[in-house]
Each structure stands twice: as structure tokens, then as C-alpha cells.
Design a binder for these strands. Sequence first.
RNA 1: GCGGGCGUAGCGUAGUGGUUAACGCGUCUGGUUGUGGCCCAGAAGAUCGCGGGUUCGAACCCCGCCGCUCGCCCCA
Length: 425
Amino acid sequence: MTTRFQAPRGTQDVLPDMQPYWQAVNDAIRVVTRLHGFRRIDTPAFEYAGVFEKGSGDTTDIVEKEMYTFEDRGGEKLALTPEGTPAICRAYLEHGMASWPQPVRLYTTHQMFRYDRPQKGRYRQHTQFDCEIFGSTDPLVDAEVIAVLWRLYTMLGIRNAGVRLGSLDDIAPRRAYVERLKDYYRPHLPKLSEDSQRRFERNPLRLLDSKDERDLPFKEAAPKLVDNLSPEARAHHETVLGALEATEIPVEIDPLLVRGLDYYNRTVFEIVPTDDARAQGTIGGGGRYDGLMEILGGPPTPGMGFGSGIERIILEMQRSGVVFENEAAADVYIVHKAEGAAAVVFGLASRLRSAGVAAVLGESNKSFKAQMRGANHSGAKFAIIIGDDELARGAGTVKDLTGEGEQESVELGRLPALLAAKLRA
RNA sequence: GCGGGCGUAGCGUAGUGGUUAACGCGUCUGGUUGUGGCCCAGAAGAUCGCGGGUUCGAACCCCGCCGCUCGCCCCA
């Protein structure tokens, strides 16, 4: 016997009972993005691998160990999208959006693929809601992007979350800072944890993020990025903070906030649960990436955006106690058992649907009782019963399933209009 | 990629070396002639994640693999 197939590791099916959550998220995304003047863009499920190797940075974990890359039959090196921002930037350049009215506000929801070790809230295929604003260096744009995400979460009933805000300075002053940081750490290198020794080479900013006890003493005295911001970046940071503080959004400065992607400068942020310390807690995060377009071969074009995992949004909704009633499968369930009724009931069902009534047919090889059970399970408000008697009269028996089950006989031709009216009531 | 926990019908669980693996929910079918929800009865559904080993005998012990999960790395 063959082994039964399972969904591939790190992937999951979204079953009907979960769909109301997805529906709610997608609906809210449409509303929120409209309120902020964003327009939708969709990019392909895969891109030339170079888009991410260059865009995300070829020493990032995403590119080094998580990308699904493959060669197609023509020998092109492609990658399933691991991250939305570089793909959207590629589209911006490819379609000459620099000649659109600036700034350009775009959003999307997109499948992301990363070869990670799965955990709750971390999957190899997940869906991300992305917003990007191109063409503006205004710090209010940074604040707005954060506000979009916050508004979405609030609309969806997510409670107990907060914004963590940081700044990574501009690229050049940050490089200078990183050198100073490395100078500070270099003599202590052998005493650091293995992870931090790797960080020293790959991503020194992460040294300040270590939870390892061996690293803690050195963190204390290390030079902090926030204390060394360039005047321009500091002013920018303070304007963003001030703007957010003018709203109800709870903001907390996180001087150690580091994001794993190379392209960020100045503003970075995350929105995290405030009542749950789980490792995969970040619901959404992003930042400013003024240098990314140039990395991808375009003209200097500032950008600011975020990604937020819809699977994680839904987990937070559930933790916040958001529940949905299961929606009825139909308005009307047609119970039928009569010689020669097939064409009549099929035609009736069609006319009901044309009248906007969701209709499901019972199976004629089942008993009335079995079909009535089906009607009950469907959640339909009415059953239409068609047996030999009704067929002879050219009528259907309408049974109200919401109350005691009162029945009335109605001429076939009048059924669609009558039921449409009853359902509207 | 590294370390810990777990894996019994669709779901939730019981059973921890010895006859036909149990219970609840769910599903299906009945409870007289054409009728739901409650109740009652019956049925279907599990090679006890997969493979190997120990043993007279394994769901129960050992090993490997797969999957889930928690933590690390990192991220949404």
C-alpha cells in the first residue's frame, strides 16, 4: 500500500471553517488601503533569482539558506518569491513608475516561500500583506505606513499589540558606526557565544540583540546606534515618533531593533504582541529603504514599506478572541423524491439562483428524512419539498426551518420571487 | 542548520508488554407508508505516523526516518 500524501512540510490547507478569517483580513486590507490612497499591484510568484540576491542582500539568511531557487528548462535561474519588496521595486522600475505622480503608494497580498524550519506562525509558504510608498523621504510617510498596519490590526480586533520603533541611520554613517562596534567587540571575540561570533562577521548589529548570557556583559558597555545617529537621521526619527504620538498608536522606542535585511536605512519598526513572548511573535514589520532601487539598477528612489504575515494576523485575531459564525451553505435546500422530478427540480434550482437565492439540491436517492437532515446541516432557512403530490399539483411545499417548521404549498412558478422576498425580510 | 517534547478512527482522548484497541463528538442508516433540529438504536471508520529491532508476544521497550510542537538562529 502506498503512503498517503500529506501537504509538504511547512505548508497548510486553509479549510472552510478558517475562510471567514481570511475573508475578514482581505476585506479589511481593501478598506484600509483605500483609506490611505494605496493601489493594488500583483507580481509573479517567481522572479529571476538575482532580484532577491541583489535586493535582499546575498548574505542575508533569506538568500543564503531559505530561497527556493530552481532552473527552468531554458536554464534561467529563478526563485519563488521569498520577500515582496524587491519584487515590487523591480516592477516599479520595469514600468517606469518614476513618471507617475509621486509618491507612489502600492499594496499587495502575495505568497511567500522560504525554506525555514517550520514553527507555529512560521511556514515555508505564507501570505504577506505588503505596503510600499515610493518617492518620498518625508518622515510622515514613515509614520503613515506604520499607521496603515496599526489601523488594519485594530479593525480586525487585535488587542494587546504595540509598535516598536528604531532607526538604523543612513548607510554611510551606519557603516562608520558598525566599524566602531566591531572595534569594541574584537578584543572580546573569544569570550562571546558561538552565535555572536558568527554575528560579528555577518551582521554585527545583531550583537546587541543577543540573549546569550555570555554576551550580556559586553552589551552593556557597547556603543549604541541610537546614541550615534547622524543629525539628519535623528531629526527624521524624532519626527516619525512625534507623528505617531499624535495618534492613539502605542509606540515604544527600541534602540536595539535590527531587521535582517540589508537594505533598510533610518526607520525600522515591528508590531509585536505585548502579552505573549513567543519567538515568532512579530505580526508585521518593515522600514525605510532609500538605497534599494539603486541596488536593483534604478535611479535613486526612496521607499518605505512593511510586510505582515496574514497567518500571524489570524493567530493574533484568535488570541484576541475574534470568532466567526459559520456561514450557511445555502438559503434554500430542495428536498425532492418523485418520479420524473429531475428536470423540474433542476430547473427550479436554476431559477432560484437567478433570483439571487442560494439553492442546494438534495440527492433523490436518499430518503426524505436523510434529505431533511441535509437541509438542516446546510444552514438553509427554508426547505422546498417536492414529492409526488407536489409534482402533480405543479407546486412545492415551502418549509420554514428557522422556527417550528410551518409549511405552505406554493405554485412552482412563484417560488423564486417568494423566497427572494422571504429571505430579504 | 542545532537542542527538547509529542504522534492511537475526521476531531478530542483512554489504554504503557499478553484475548476481537475503548470512549465522546462528528459521519451514515433506521425508529413503519413523504419530512430536519431533541431522544433512541445500529453501522461505517484505526495496518495504533512509517520502517527496522528486542521479545513466545509490542500501541506500549530500543534505533532510524517522517510530521507536529517548543526554544535557538532568523523572520512575517
